[in-house]
Design a protein around this nucleic acid. Structure first.
Lengths: 191, 191
DNA sequence: ACGCGCACTAAGCGCTTGCTTAGCATGCAA
DNA sequence: TTGCATGCTAAGCAAGCGCTTAGTGCGCGT
């Protein structure tokens, strides 16, 4: 059985609040009341509002990198691998749209030090996608003129989901991830 | 010669501030000082901080719709038209990344009434892209299984630019718009 | 020369912000 | 029984918020 600590309850409350109102629009009182605690309780478990954001953002970046890294390792066939990477990355953003929104849109609200730390995960995510495309070109399966630009565009499809995606909406995460994977193949397949 | 009114100077200041710090993170004092005025001057020309946001957002939505509408009317050839629409839409977002950021990311900060008003422009933008794809399919030039989903994905490429694009960066708006137009053709061309 | 209207400011009001301080209930070791 | 650490709250502080009020200086028509 997993016990949810008070610290974790506060983090979950912060995820809800930041995703709904943004970092600047969220008050520490709002976070506390979502977690069923008094305003002062936030500071028993976390140093500041920004350090709460950093916890959420760092964990989100780590999980996003892990998703795309595992997908990259799932196959040696360039086409299967590309499909898996785009599918899993987009699905993760649909399934975790609140955390994803914080990762993508509250990046600028981090302190310089914290922003620099999560920036390494962002570079790794981009590099993983670029490497997959470059390898597909080397193997003669893919035809990609602009590898960094195309990699970024493929990631954009997943990232942009968090701007509007709501669970229980008219389209499921699987549907959208499948669409993105198919579009990715069309964008890059050698003809 | 064009004279910039005090009202416009405040709007320009608001664009800078909202794009940099977000709506909730911007103070009316910040807007006023960027415009070289006292805090009270804001209220001589605008009703509230939110009405300043609405002015920026409404104008941005109108201009984005106009860009894609003109591109849609620029050719009857489905492929040329698609290229023009994606190119112009992405280029506009690169050239107007600050306004674009406000249009896309501060949408939720509008009042319900104001949000409903700009929502019509968003629907028109989507519909314009969907119609162009559907017509290309009808003419036998394009092959698009999921028209609304693909239309949204094509727009996402341009929209996502505003998240990170900075004028004077390593890639020009033209470069990115060309890339997006080429990817759009690959995504939809019948083979 | 004068008076009026308009663009603008100095000052500040009531409220909310992030965060701190002082203290209290509970549980456990001795 | 005592003593103390732990996890929390009530109260509040200084600063900053959106916005208002009361007025000032200046250009312009007469």
């Amino acid at each position: 059985m997993t016990t949810i600590t008070a610290r974790e309850r506060l983090i979950n409350a912060a995820v809800e609040a930041f995703a709904e109102k943004g970092f600047a629009g969220t008050t520490t009182r709002d976070i506390a009341s979502r977690a069923g605690m008094s305003p002062a309780a936030v500071y028993v478990h976390h140093d500041s509002k920004e350090s709460l954001l950093f916890s959420v953002s760092l964990d989100g970046h780590r999980r996003a990198l892990e998703v795309i890294t595992s997908a990259a390792a799932s196959s040696t066939d360039p086409l299967d691998r590309l499909r898996a990477m785009v599918y899993d990355f987009s699905l993760w953003h649909a399934d975790n749209s609140r955390v994803g929104r914080i990762v993508q849109y509250e990046y600028h609200a981090l302190t310089d030090e914290h922003r620099a730390e999560v920036a390494t995960y962002r570079r790794d995510i981009e590099k993983t996608m670029q490497d997959a495309l470059a390898d597909g070109v080397d193997q003669g399966v893919l035809d990609v003129v602009d590898v960094p630009g195309t990699a970024f565009s493929l990631l954009s499809l997943g990232v942009d989901l968090v701007r509007w995606f709501e669970p229980g909406g008219s389209r499921s995460g699987h549907e959208l991830a499948s669409l993105h994977a198919e579009l990715a193949v069309r964008m890059t397949l050698r003809r």
